[in-house]
Computed example of a mutant assay.
Amino acid sequence: MTLLKCATHVVSDLDDAITRYESWMDYRTVEQGEVSHDLAAAWNAPASGGRRFAVLQPASRAEVFLRFVEGDPVPDYVPIRTYGWAAIELCVTNVEAVNERMLQSPFEVIGPPKPLDGFATVKPMQVRGADLETVYLTEILQPGPDSGLPQPQSLVDRPFIMVLACPDLRKSAQWVKDVLGLPMIDPVAIRYSMIEKAFGLPETAKTELTTARGAGQVFLELDQYPDAATKRPRHEGALPPGVAITTMLYPDFARLEGHWASAPVVREGAIYGGKRTGVLLTPEGALLEVVEGGEI
């Protein structure tokens, strides 16, 4: 089981994004509508109220979703250069087959399949979509409880890790431990091609990262970003561009008292399922939406 529930990305053309993910990632739309003004206020993004959204589910029917919310492009936004949620990582059964598909698709392959330095359990690739979304597509080489990784059930399956770009990795990791009470590995330093390319770093550069587990599976990755990284630009009152929100399950709302940026209320829909849902802010100011449920 995973505590991860949804990754939300801002898109300029909702219909185009739906077509892209249904046609090339085999996702299907399970909910559409307009963002309620109450929900937008909970995100501290009142200008996103009334904007169209869609929730998509992977072909495996796993109840871990992608949500797209329409928003106006931010001219100064460059992916993998700012703090906050940096990327969506989807698990796949065969990364080489996915790569062949992506080469024929509207997605740009920005990182072909290759082993990940220091992690023999996975083989990722990376693509970028028309809305500057960075998507990691990762084959799980060693699924199971020991690795904390899922066994994908469709060629392109669910989001399984969300990546948070941090100005101070240890501060953010301590926040995850203190607020959420989740176990994290000690930081490790690896060659990280996406960060190398984004910041023009030498091949000898190393990036520190750490991961958090919940319900037995890894679902959060925290990356230490270089000093050249900046706060993410955004339109006033709107969701930030790129990956705007990570939504997770969490069973112990009493533990989160005193930490809420938006107090829990009951919400309906594919993501919330009639459960209490509140919003936390990470030390970077990234939105972490929390739905009551799951098991640590």
Rank of each mutant, 00 (worst) to 15 (best):
G129D: 15
G144S: 13
Y21F: 14
G118E: 11
E257C: 11
R20H: 14
L169M: 10
A59Y: 04
E221I: 04
F199N: 04
F219Q: 02
P251L: 10
D72H: 05
T8D: 00
Q57E: 08
W24V: 06
A17D: 01
Q224M: 09
F119H: 08
A45I: 01
P167C: 04
A205C: 08
D76T: 06
T121E: 14
Q32D: 01
P283V: 05
W85C: 00
S23W: 10
L103G: 08
R51D: 12
S23R: 06
E289F: 08
W260G: 00
T277H: 06
V11H: 03
L39V: 09
T29I: 11
R128L: 07
A212V: 11
A97P: 02
P79E: 06
R158C: 02
G148D: 00
V92A: 04
P112M: 09
V11S: 01
P124W: 04
L209M: 13
A87Y: 02
G33R: 12
A54G: 04
V64D: 03
K171P: 00
I185G: 12
K177N: 12
G294L: 13
E221N: 13
P46I: 04
V218F: 14
R51W: 05
D178G: 08
V243M: 13
A54V: 07
R213T: 09
W24R: 13
M125F: 05
D38L: 15
G258F: 09
P240W: 00
A238W: 00
D157S: 15
T282H: 03
I18L: 05
C166S: 14
G294A: 15
V78K: 09
A86P: 00
Q32Y: 03
T138N: 01
